[in-house]
Each structure stands twice: as C-alpha cells, then as structure tokens.
Design a protein around this nucleic acid. Sequence first.
DNA 1: CCCCATGTTCGACA
DNA 2: GTGTCGAACATGGG
Length: 275
Amino acid sequence: MPELAEVFYHARTWRQAGLGGLLNEVRAHLPARCLRDFGGQLDPAQWQDQRLESVETHGKQIMLQFSKKLWLGVHLGMTGRLLCAPAQWLPERHQHFAIRIETHWLVYEDSRQFGRLRPHFQEAPPDWWLARPPGLLEAGFSRQRLAQALARHPRTTLKGLLLDQNYFPGIGNWMADEILWQARIHPACPAARIQGRRLSLLHQTIRQVAAGALQTIGQDYRDPPSDWLFTHRWRNGGLCPRTNAPLQRSTIAGRTTCFSPQWQIYGLPDPSQTV
DNA sequence: CCCCATGTTCGACA
DNA sequence: GTGTCGAACATGGG
C-alpha cells in the first residue's frame, strides 16, 4: 500500500488531528514486531506532556517532532495505516500503538507488522533522518544524481534500481512500474543502457509521476488519471492504455512487475559492454 | 491447501 | 569491499 503519496496522505491524517497539541497518553502493545525499536518497554514519563511540533514525510519515512527531546520515526511497511480516533477509542486487533493528543487518538495499525516505529530521545534528530537523500521533487534530485545511480549499478535492472530508497526515496512497486511505462523503458533493461535523451526523459518522468501521485492519492486517495498504467496494472486482462495490447506480468528484481511488451524497450546496447 | 501481497533486511554467494 | 539474489519477517485475502 504505502509509497510516496500514500505515506504523505497518512501523515496528514495525524498532522491534522494532532499538530500543536499536547500528548496526554500513550499505549503500546509490546512486544509487537513493529515496535521492536522500543527495547521491550515504554516509559510513560518520556512521552507525557510533549507538544507535537511537526509531522513531516520524506519518501516512505515519516517523522514526528515533539517539544522535549522526543522524535518518533514511522515507517508503514507493507500494511501500516495511520488513523485518528475519538477519545473513547479502544484498541482493535493490529492496532499496536497510539498516542492521545488532547481529545484525539493517533492510532498506528499494521496487520503484517513490516512497519516500524522508532522513538528517539535526544535533542537532535536521529542520524537516519539527518542523512536522508534528496527527495524526488527537490533540486538535489538532479539529472546528475540519477546518472550517478545508473553508473554505479550498470548491470542492475531499472526496476530494481528504482526501488533503491537511497536514490529514489518513496518509489515502490507500483510507482516504479508507472515510471518505466511512461518513459517507455523495459523494466528488465540494464541501467547502463540509459543515457543521453533517455536519461533526461527518465528523470523528468520520475518527477512527473511523483508530482501526479501527490496531487491525487496524496490529497484524497483518489486514483491517478486513467491514462496512467496505475488503474490497469492489476486488472486481469488489463490493456496498455497506449497500445491497447495486453499488459504482461513477470517477476523482475524479485517483485511482480507489470509492463507493456511492445511499448517498453531495452534500447541500444551499452557500448562499454560489447565484447 | 495453494498462491499472492504498494517493503526492508540479512545471510549467502560470486 | 561490492553487487546481486532469495528467504524471512506475520497476516490476510482470493
């Protein structure tokens, strides 16, 4: 479920309900796997009377900053959701963590528990947050940075490379397929083959897909436009919106991948690879 | 019962 | 050290 835009959407749920309010109560169902960074216990004193000062996202990461040496990193994993509940809320199955801010509960729910909540009790934010790579819509995510990623992993498939959070924070399985389809690149194409104009096109497409996802899913969970691959990719018998030919699914880089065989091409062989 | 799942991490291996 | 791959994690749905 959660990639860039879904994460952004969930974070806003908590932000709208809790920003600026005082934390009055905390519940954690230890030892759930998603709470593995709590060290097996929770000291309510460290959470009490903290004001929620900001809720930010970066790629798939969410960070809550509180007023007194408390940060809370949240990753939604595969099935994590952020909910808001009234004061009389009682935990349901898979609701492993919650904080009450004034009259609202901010609830973390995650059936598969691949997600992760990371508390950090310091004045300064944790290193993993300080070291976050340039976001897809930031100036730092330049054509040059994309070229570096490609050059560093010349034999990796494009599909696999786009899933690397170090270079492409927020891209997940469906966004990777969408980007490659829009840029007409075969998902199994080796990274070294993307150069020149195709590199510029890929760079642009990454930004457009990120922006488009944030404007739709990120705002109100509405689907992206029907001329995207998005709404066609999992339907049985789904057709490519460009060629009208049947979409194909196969496993690439260990993930189920949807693409349009005629539409998406490998491109020219990389000269440096010729024997 | 079987297979699949919008993610990350860790161990094995080249 | 580097890069790549598959399994594992825990649970639910088709």
